[in-house]
Write a protein that binds this DNA or RNA. Structure first.
Lengths: 158, 158
DNA sequence: TAACACCTTCAAGCCAACTTGAAGGTCAAG
DNA sequence: CTTGACCTTCAAGTTGGCTTGAAGGTGTTA
């Protein structure tokens, strides 16, 4: 009951089975123990790791970076000063990223404020500039995929 | 004197000339006016745009997204309600990203705190887990490229 | 025992965002 | 009037992160 086949973990973590195999191949996941028939057998823990991977990815981390963070977290007990250092570097990196994003946001908001305070916003003609963009933007679609939904991976469907 | 050739803008924005051509090709930059010989002629404005592109990219935006933001900012005068809406969506997206990153940071920091409070950090043996990682981490290298330095693009060198 | 949904490997294909290379035109300096 | 550093286009290659397909084994259910 704590044993899941690849399709099952994939579904629970909302990725495809192929992706899970790929993650193992590139070293993100530790190779799963196999059943007598050669089937990979996973536990809930793997589902957690997979979910973590997707979240970190959505935040812009590469699989390499995520792999390192996973290794740190797997080291779990006995985190020596090296591990600690590495982890602290990661946090510092994230902090830097947050600061930059915050500045970026201020920049954008600044432009908007400039515009907002100005003339009446009746658009005539030249607003075609964003015609294409609004197509996507007007029907609830993600014109800007701030949280990435990389072709969704409906896992084992079809 | 306000006229720059492609190598010049490239150098000033710290990208390669090929990248500038590529950006024009995919519609990120508006096609530059040509000299009689067919050379692209740019202004300082393009350098600014290129720098913006690199910054936005480092923050995890795709070229498509950046292209939209650039269009918004080029619309400059007469920003109709549509443009304004679009821009506000972008800000909202950035806000969301910042919130997620902040939570991520808290998670990482939490783990570190747990460890930090614990046993003595003398690492014996099993610390090999991070041997590979420390290789990169110990010599000032960017084990985690939080601000991306995508194969650098030393522009027109060599 | 046949169907069917799962699993396996391996190889190839795809998209974004570039980079690299070939083949050639332009132009100021020696 | 040639050298050398620029510029041009076009085509093909690269990397990361997958997806898709072929060819085949597994295991429950009718």
């Amino acid at each position: 009951m704590g044993e899941l086949l690849i399709g099952e973990v994939a579904k629970r973590a909302d990725v495809s089975a192929a992706t899970v195999r790929y993650y193992e191949e590139v070293g993100l996941l530790t190779p799963a123990p196999r059943s007598s028939a050669g089937y990979r057998r996973y536990t809930e823990g793997t589902v957690e790791e997979l979910r973590f991977v997707r979240k970190a990815q959505a935040l812009g981390f590469s699989l390499d970076e995520i792999g390192e963070i996973l290794k740190l977290s797997r080291a779990g007990r006995t985190p020596c000063s090296h591990v600690l250092d590495l982890a602290k570097r990661h946090v510092a990196g994230v902090d830097e990223r947050i600061r930059q994003l915050t500045r970026f946001r201020a920049h954008l908001a600044g432009e908007i404020a400039k515009w907002d305070g100005e003339r009446q916003p009746t658009c005539q003609g030249l607003c075609q500039i964003i015609a294409g963009a609004s197509d996507e933007a007007t029907d609830g679609a993600p014109m800007t995929s701030h949280i990435q939904q990389r072709r969704s991976a409906r896992s084992t469907r079809q």
